[in-house]
């Protein structure tokens, strides 16, 4: 893949930025705690982070590390094209649990809002003030390499623009994210 300026991977509680291990925790650390500790490590003050579902937290943290060197102008018209496999299934299941039991039926609006996989793009766009093209694609887990290339090919470049493309997934307590910052 060409024009890649920065790349980040987070999986197995290891954060790898530009090929270098930046942060890690023991495998036994619960995912939620791993995300919180990474958030604290980054010294962020963004209380909205704690309201996000796991998929959004994952994308938010990866984007934070990938985009922190860009100026507001560079980010304004950026494109964000992401793919995932299991959509918002984590939040879907939690929301379903609020409506499955007749005697304890209280559908939660703050869960429902995360039952769309593209909310993670909204969270990144809000945080970094990104107004450009955006799309969330779904793909089988065995196709993640190829979907990133497909997204890369799909970018219609205007001069001097950036794009965030990548893959993220959260399913049955397993997560992973591979994000790339691309420049025209």
């Amino acid at each position: 893949m060409h024009n890649v300026q920065r790349a980040i991977t987070i999986r197995n509680h290891q954060v790898i930025l530009q090929g270098e291990l930046l942060f890690q925790r023991d495998q036994s650390t619960p995912n939620a705690r791993f995300f919180s500790e990474l958030y604290k490590e980054l010294k962020l003050t963004y209380p909205k982070f704690f309201k996000m579902d796991p998929l959004a937290k994952l994308g938010f943290l990866a984007a934070e590390l990938l985009l922190n060197s860009l100026s507001a102008e560079e980010k304004e018209e950026m494109k964000i094209l992401l793919a995932c496999s299991h959509s918002s299934i984590e939040s879907d299941t939690m929301f379903q649990n609020t409506i499955s039991d007749e005697s304890n039926y209280y559908p939660s609006p703050s869960l429902f809002v995360y039952t769309l996989p593209n909310i993670v793009i909204g969270e990144i766009a809000i945080r970094h003030r990104i107004y450009g093209e955006n799309g969330l694609y779904l793909t089988p887990p065995n196709n993640k390499k190829s979907i990133i290339e497909t997204l890369h090919k799909q970018i219609k470049w205007e001069d001097n623009r950036y794009a965030l493309i990548g893959y993220l997934d959260y399913y049955k307590n397993k997560y992973e994210v591979d994000f790339y910052l691309i420049h025209s």
């Binding site: 496999s85 299991h86 959509s87 299934i89 769309l116 694609y137 779904l138 793909t139 089988p140 196709n143």
Partner: peptide, 25 residues
């Protein structure tokens, strides 16, 4: 329940072998 699963079932029904694109925006 996974959308890619459904999309593959439908493309297979039509015997199309290209990996379908699925947008959920």
């Amino acid at each position: 329940v996974h959308i890619w699963e459904s999309a593959e079932i439908v493309t297979q029904y039509f015997q199309n072998n290209n990996q379908p694109i699925i947008l959920s925006n």
